[in-house]
């Protein structure tokens, strides 16, 4: 009995001590954070959330940006991955999260626009997120196999018009840049393709290279890498793409649309204006670094230096464009 009560006493004591220690630590943490809020932003590490898997294009770009950002902001920048729901997991967390600017997130167009349009509850609305900076586009191009009978986009479209749904086109995911591109092409040319969505860019390329689809909507970097195995018919840039100067744009060929994945960075909507501007300036500094631009272009990206206001206008424009296409094609 004696030892039992001693145990009980010991247990209670342990609990009491833990509570005290816990409160002290917590108070310390709160105090430290409280003091931090008064100081100028940023005063502690900034978390840069990548809404996709490690090793993807968004991740690679962020890894390159990190050092420059740390220099520009003067604090640590921690990259963390929160993949899921095609980006929705991270964006819904950001929309509901704190507005202090210490959590920023990659922003991918068109995903961030389409998801709230087509899902019952994506967990966020595009307007819940405040665009900060747009730094990059991966143009999307359309290609067929090297031994394909089609040599130009017109021949492909001609065939598709005569045989609706017969041409299979590989791409990455549904309600993504690739999916939107095929929808826009169908809408503008009045044809019908069979879009075969894969779980990512790599499996999509594998499906195409294995001859399981006749055409592919591929990211510029994949097109550059595998150009020997394919004929690239058109690319979704406004002007000719630097890495593929012989490939015409869709616009040149008479289909007035651009296709690509725009990458930028975003924060929660109610983040203070001066915090947004501070981040904008930091990303601007990084994005103008010639070394960074050269490295990114070598990987097959198109670099931009677009600030918060222009970025917001771009999202608005894209939203209108996408809504029209989706509505016309009966997706909404």
């Amino acid at each position: 009995m004696g030892s039992y009560s001693r145990f009980r006493r010991a247990g209670r004591l342990a609990c009491a001590m833990l509570v005290v220690v816990g409160m002290l630590v917590g108070a310390g943490a709160l105090f430290a954070r409280g003091a931090g809020e008064d100081a100028e932003y940023p005063s502690r590490a900034v978390t840069y959330v990548i809404p996709f898997d490690a090793g993807g294009q968004s991740d690679i770009t962020a890894q390159y940006q990190r050092e420059g950002l740390e220099r520009a902001l003067g604090v640590d920048v921690v990259i963390r991955h929160q993949a899921g729901g095609g980006g929705a997991l991270a964006w819904s967390a950001l929309a509901r999260g704190s507005t202090d600017g210490y959590t920023i997130s990659g922003n991918n167009i068109p995903h961030i626009i389409i998801q709230p349009l087509v899902r019952e509850n994506a967990g966020y609305e595009t307007e819940d997120l405040r665009p900060v900076y747009l730094f990059q586009t991966t143009p999307i191009g359309l290609a067929v196999a090297a031994n394909s009978p089609f040599d130009t986009l017109d021949e492909l479209i001609e065939h598709a018009r005569a045989n609706p749904g017969q041409i299979t086109v590989s791409g990455s995911g549904t309600h993504t840049g690739h999916h939107l591109a095929i929808m826009q092409l169908q809408y503008l040319s009045g044809t019908q393709f069979t879009y075969i969505p894969a779980t990512g860019a790599a499996p999509s390329v594998a499906n195409f290279l294995g001859g399981h689809t006749q055409a592919i909507l591929g990211n510029s970097d994949d097109l550059v890498q595998h150009r020997d195995a394919m004929k690239i018919l058109a690319i979704g840039t406004t002007e000719r793409f630097h890495a593929l100067p012989d490939v015409p744009t869709f616009i040149e060929l008479g289909y007035d649309f651009t296709a690509g994945i725009d990458r930028g960075v975003t924060v929660a909507r109610d983040t203070p204006e001066e915090v947004v501007r501070r981040l904008e300036a930091a990303f601007d500094a990084v994005s103008r670094d010639p070394d960074f631009i050269a490295r990114m272009e070598a990987l097959g990206f198109e670099q931009h230096q677009i600030g918060a206001d222009e970025f917001a206008a771009h999202i608005e424009r894209k939203t209108r464009e996408i809504t029209t296409v989706l509505r016309e094609l009966g997706e909404l």
Binding site: S3, Y4, R6, F7, R9, A10, G11, A14
Partner: peptide, 14 residues
């Protein structure tokens, strides 16, 4: 630890 303990020896629990 408190739930799973089968001994009453405080030292072990500690």
């Amino acid at each position: 630890v408190i739930i799973l303990r089968s001994t009453e020896r405080a030292a072990v629990v500690w």
